[in-house]
Amino acid sequence: KKYKVVEVKENKDGTVELVVENENGEKKKITLSKEELDKLKAGDTVELK
């Protein structure tokens, strides 16, 4: 499934919390490390299994 990044929030521990949404409007929260996030920004599309 493809999800669009709608919100990006940095946590104090250096991880980043993303809120992503698919075309049905379903939202998910995922947490990434700073390194994983470096290639993402709001409006990008991510694929989740």
Rank of each mutant, 00 (worst) to 15 (best):
Y3I: 01
E47C: 14
K41M: 09
V6P: 00
K29I: 13
E36H: 15
V5E: 00
N22K: 03
E17C: 14
D38C: 15
T31V: 09
E36L: 10
K12H: 11
V20D: 00
K29Y: 14
K28P: 00
D38L: 13
K49L: 14
K41T: 05
L40W: 13
E36Y: 14
T31G: 02
Y3N: 00
T15R: 04
K28G: 05
T15Y: 10
D38R: 11
E21A: 08
T45Y: 15
E17W: 14
K9A: 07
K1Q: 10
K41V: 10
E47K: 04
K39T: 12
D44S: 06
E26R: 05
L18H: 00
V8A: 06
K41C: 07
T15G: 03
L40R: 04
G14S: 02
N22D: 13
E7W: 15
E23G: 05
E17G: 06
E7R: 06
E23K: 04
D13F: 03
K49I: 15
I30P: 00
V16E: 00
Y3D: 00
G43M: 04
K4T: 06
K49P: 15
D44P: 02
G25I: 00
T45C: 15
K9M: 08
I30A: 02
D38K: 11
E23D: 08
T15F: 07
K2A: 05
E47D: 13
V20K: 00
E7S: 13
Y3S: 00
K34V: 08
T45D: 14
K4R: 12
D44T: 03
L40Q: 03
V19M: 08
K9N: 09
V16C: 13
K12M: 09
A42M: 12
T31R: 08
V6C: 11
K34N: 07
T45K: 06
G14Y: 01
E21G: 01
V16R: 07
A42Q: 08
L18N: 00
K12E: 08
L32W: 14
N22Q: 03
L48P: 07
V19F: 06
K4E: 01
E17R: 05
K39G: 15
L32Y: 12
V46F: 06
L32C: 10
D13E: 03
K2M: 13
L40S: 05
I30N: 00
L32G: 13
N24W: 13
T15N: 05
K9S: 08
K39W: 06
T15L: 06
K27A: 07
I30L: 14
V20L: 08
N11W: 08
N11P: 02
K2S: 05
D13K: 01
V8N: 01
D38P: 15
L48E: 10
T31Q: 07
N22T: 08
L48A: 09
D44L: 05
V5S: 01
V19R: 04
V6D: 01
E7G: 08
K1Y: 10
L32M: 11
K34F: 11
S33R: 15
N11L: 10
N24I: 09
K49Y: 02
E21H: 03
I30S: 01
K12R: 10
G25F: 05
K49T: 15
K2I: 09
K27T: 10
L48I: 15
Y3L: 02
G14P: 00
G25D: 01
D13M: 02
T15I: 05
G14T: 01
K9L: 11
E10Q: 07
E10G: 03
L40E: 01
E35A: 13
K41N: 06
I30F: 15
L18S: 00
T31S: 07
N11E: 05
E26I: 09
Y3K: 00
K2E: 03
G43N: 08
E26T: 07
N11V: 04
E7P: 00
K9Q: 09
N11F: 09
L37T: 15
I30R: 01
L37A: 15
E23V: 07
V8Y: 11
L40H: 07
V20A: 03
L37S: 15
E35C: 15
K2T: 09
D44Q: 05
L37W: 13
A42R: 07
L32E: 00
E17L: 11
G25H: 06
N22Y: 04
K9H: 11
V5I: 14
K4P: 00
K28N: 07
V16I: 09
V20R: 00
V19C: 10
D38Y: 13
E26F: 13
E17Y: 15
K41Y: 06
K2Y: 10
L48D: 12
V46W: 03
K2L: 12
Y3A: 01
K34W: 11
E36S: 14
K27R: 13
K39N: 14
S33N: 10
L32A: 06
T31L: 10
L40V: 15
E36P: 12
K28Q: 11
D13Y: 03
L18A: 07
K49M: 14
G43L: 03
A42T: 08
K4I: 08
V19E: 05
D13P: 01
E36D: 11
K9I: 10
L48R: 06
E26V: 09
N11Q: 08
K27Y: 13
K4W: 05
K34E: 05
V20S: 01
N24G: 08
V5K: 00
D13I: 02
E7M: 11
